[in-house]
Design a protein around this nucleic acid. Sequence first.
RNA 1: GCGCCCGUAGCUCAGCUGGAUAGAGCGGUUGCCUCCGAAGCAACAGGCCGGGAGUUCGAAUCUCUCCGGGCGCACCA
Length: 671
Amino acid sequence: MYLQLQQQLIQRVSDLLKRQYDVELPRIVVDQPPNVGLGEYALPLSFELARKLRKPPRMIAEEVVAALGQVPGFEKFEVAGAGYINARINREEAARLLLDPSAPRIGSATGKKILVEHTSINPNKAAHIGHLRNAILGDTFVRLLQAAGARVDVQNYIDNTGVQVADVVVGFLYLEKKGKSEIEKLIASAGPPPHSFDYYCWDLYARVSQWYEESKENLKLRLQTLHDIERGGNDAAEIGKLISMAIIRRHLETMERLSIEYDFLPQESEILHLHFWESAFEQLKQKGVLYFETEGKNKGCWVMKRAISPQAAKRQAAAEGNDAGEAKGGQNKDGPDEDAKVIVRSNGTVTYVGKDIAYHLWKFGLLGRDFGYQRFYCYPNGRQVWISAESGEKDHPHFGGVNAIYNVIDSRQADPQNNVIEAIRGLGYTEQAEDYHHFSYEMVALTPRCAMDLGYDVSEEDQKRSYIEVSGRKGFGVKADDLLDSLIAAAQKEVDSRHPEMVGQERHEIASQIAIGALRYFMLKFTKTSVIAFDFKEALSFEGETGPYAQYAIVRASNIFRKAGLSAEEILGGETDLHFLKEDDELWELWLRAGQLSSMIEQCIATTEPAYAAKFAFQLAQQFNNFYHKHHILTEEDEAKKGFLLATAAVVRRALIHSLELMGIGAPIVM
RNA sequence: GCGCCCGUAGCUCAGCUGGAUAGAGCGGUUGCCUCCGAAGCAACAGGCCGGGAGUUCGAAUCUCUCCGGGCGCACCA
């Protein structure tokens, strides 16, 4: 509702500016006045135009207001402060839009096919809290895109031929002296966490990392095992596959607990064995993106010019604009470009970035090759997960070939990601390069106190830091399933004491809804650029700015309807006297925020920042709680007023449920 | 050395495509359950928005610089 009216207003104003002053602003800024009593939109454009038109801002504002006249959906326009143009929405009309449950919503991404890749945990150990942040951010973004009308494929990339898997293979073969059949038995006999296979590997992985430090001979075994796995067709490769498959299944189980699902699991082994790189290599050579270095430290390698950061590129472009004609970059300096990125090593093997370029050409449908596809797992709701295979099933959906991609990868991978984008741009695929988004986020770390509570040795130096990085290699971190279990246990305790009348199964379901709400909200309330210093006390909290706070607001709203013997849907569809909105700014503010839901969705997508969704839900819940406290609906004597208050609760409840849904958080029946 | 991110209340963080009086949660103090459930509400205390300069009618927000912290910069994966 809010977004629609805003777009109409912008259109109207920009037409007017063109007609009346013959000016076109690149963007018409729309703010919200400090309080709703001043209107719903504030346009500061007169300040911007004052110089250009040689008129004081206030005069411009007055002229614009006079010229605007009547605009459908708006009550009036007025000049405020030193020259703001404030717009007032026709409250009753807007509220009617909000009540209509069948109102069509058209998002900015309608009709687009978008690929989101997230989770992508090395299949060699249990998932930890850092992986949770990745998966929750990714899954929430998927939901936001879908709400904006996009068709989204969800991919979870599996690096099954990397060192991490090799390390665990080494652990089984040389530390534990276990063969294939013994590992098979181990997998078959594993139970749920903490007796699960991924937990077992978590410890083994840490032990192997220690063991490598004991002698150089051990490290040689690692390299040899890695090469065996890459080549395929041997014991190490078989065991690697066995381990990786078993761990992937565990990761899917862990994520399923959080309602996180996938469509396709592309594996690195297929990228290798189906020769994706060979196709990419041809293209890259032909277009001159890669060149063969004949001198310097990279002699004998195929290299590409290293990408510069987007910001540095902007600065460089600006500098070039100032003094055009200057030499640009190091390409034509003396000697080889020592800073170049090696893509093919002098021994002929391809680096990780090279494989990634090939893989991303596939994503955009530009490679000319495809994976084989095999069924891997089917969710209870019928959704099918596919996994890559050398020769797959005959009938399968087609993945890749999308309009835009989002890779949810932590900020430490910014350089390699930029290199892939540069290669794609270099091949002439500028549009695709623009629609390649590195969805970058900061890591989750542990506070020193948290690390010590978990029983880890923390050096004196580390104790002074505000946070310590999680490390799978050291086995240092909080496992995802452990955290979930603690959260469920904590929620269960509350539910048990509040609802002794309910049966165990029901209580457990509610407890897990609350736990997931707490966890998902916790991971989303921080902006992507903020390092989360993980702290159990904060994460386990169900009070204040948390998921359960918002869930509780919904429960309260639902209780009103249950107690009244009405359904919220009935109220939304019925007749409501909306004149109360005219004089009550506080109530109108509540309706207005509910109406800003789609505006919030677009903002999240435009900035790739799901944290806005969390803030939105919390603020709406907070406003609702305030309303709930102030108005006792069921004892309201004025029938018209009562109906209006019920409609208010129904509208807000629906917006709350929807906003939590966007974050993958369910609405419990009771709490 | 180069690049990226961060620095806002005691703590953890919003606000940053410039705009009206800088916000929230936690923690602290104090109230509120005969009333749709207190996982809640209300109130108070708490701020040179890291320092400095610049751009602007206007800067927490943009630019530069310095200080402090974090993370990247292999023919490793």
